[in-house]
């Protein structure tokens, strides 16, 4: 009873925040509307899913961990298939409604999951390891392209991955982590936020939504610490939302300053609400840090009404 109510509570908050955003930034309304149901269903699943049974909960070697070996690298984060069926049953209809264009692919994915051919679990594992060969092959079988397939699989299995990541949080909570990629799954962040009076910087993993603290002025992607090589890009009246751009690796990360953020902070909603910045920055040739599976922009048709932007030295 309580679980349900807290879940519905969260779903309500998501809706409320999105509604507020839509009102204030009408240009984002279409996108936000598309994602609203996806986020809601994902939130429900995250609560409902049982903890995966076949995940090995063991602690990593602290030395190797502190030198950048993720739980994924160490084989402590294998993909659990316990609840795959449930997740796909629930997510596929929602995704189909939100993104009519990918319906044929979703249909093929559904069949594949039933037949277990092609093996989408292996495909997903390969995706987490950035090994794209099998993804291409699978994409060919499912009559789509690898980028779309990655997006579909990413959206589909995200609740599963998030749940699994959550179950591993305890094994690393006391360990030191200084890298810009996720200590659990090794993916790069989709979001950086500053919180507290001193503005502690936290990163949010694009894949498993794990959050970890990171150096305030360092680029998570190339570890550049030279402030001359980084810049913040934001729109004049929304300075709390900015793209953290690194000129060394030509990558950017969406960032928000929670101290001035006018909405309730829900990471996935915040990311969706900053898509106007993604478009802006990507037009200058900068790429997002996270894999395309976890970034929302390239897969959507968006209007290119560019609000005036301003680039400032950080």
């Amino acid at each position: 009873m309580t679980v349900e109510s807290s879940t519905e509570e969260r779903v309500k908050r998501i809706k409320k925040t999105i509604t507020k955003m839509k009102k204030e930034t009408p240009s984002l309304a279409i996108i936000l509307k598309l994602y609203e149901k996806v986020f809601a269903e994902r939130a429900r699943l995250r609560e409902e899913l049982p903890l995966p049974m076949d995940v090995r909960i063991s602690s990593p070697d602290p030395f190797r961990f502190s030198h950048g070996m993720t739980l994924m690298n160490e084989g402590i984060f294998p993909l659990s298939t316990d609840s795959m069926e449930k997740v796909s049953d629930r997510m596929i209809p929602v995704l189909a409604r939100a993104f009519p264009k990918i319906r044929p692919i979703l249909k093929n994915v559904k069949t594949a999951l039933k037949k277990n051919k092609p093996d989408l679990k292996t495909c997903m594992e390969n995706m987490l390891h950035s090994r794209d060969e099998i993804i291409s092959q699978t994409a060919f079988h499912l009559e789509t392209d690898p980028v779309t397939l990655k997006f579909v699989l990413g959206q589909l299995f995200k609740p599963l991955i998030e749940k699994q990541s959550e179950s591993l949080r305890s094994v690393i909570q006391n360990l030191n982590w200084e890298k810009g990629y996720c200590p659990v799954c090794g993916s790069f962040p989709v979001l950086s936020y500053l919180k507290g009076a001193e503005g502690q910087r936290w990163l949010v993993c694009g894949c498993c939504s794990h959050e970890w603290r990171f150096a305030r002025t360092q680029c998570p992607f190339c570890e550049n610490e030279d402030s001359k090589k980084s810049e913040l890009c934001f729109v004049e009246d929304r300075a709390y939302e900015r793209a953290e751009m690194c000129h060394q690796c030509k990558r950017y990360l969406a960032g928000i300053d929670l101290r001035k953020y006018p909405y309730e902070f829900i990471p996935e909603v915040a990311v969706a609400g900053m898509m106007y910045l993604d478009i802006l920055v990507q037009e200058t040739g900068y790429l997002p840090m996270a894999d395309s599976a976890w970034t929302l922009v390239p897969h959507l048709e968006t209007s290119s009404k560019n609000p005036k932007s301003k680039v400032l030295n950080s």
Binding site: F221, C222, E223, N224, C249, K250
Partner: peptide
């Protein structure tokens, strides 16, 4: 696989732009 140095602090090579 994406051309990002395993060790950015001693980046011998990187795929940029």
């Amino acid at each position: 696989l994406n051309g990002k140095p395993y060790n950015p602090k001693r980046a011998l090579l990187a795929w940029v732009d």
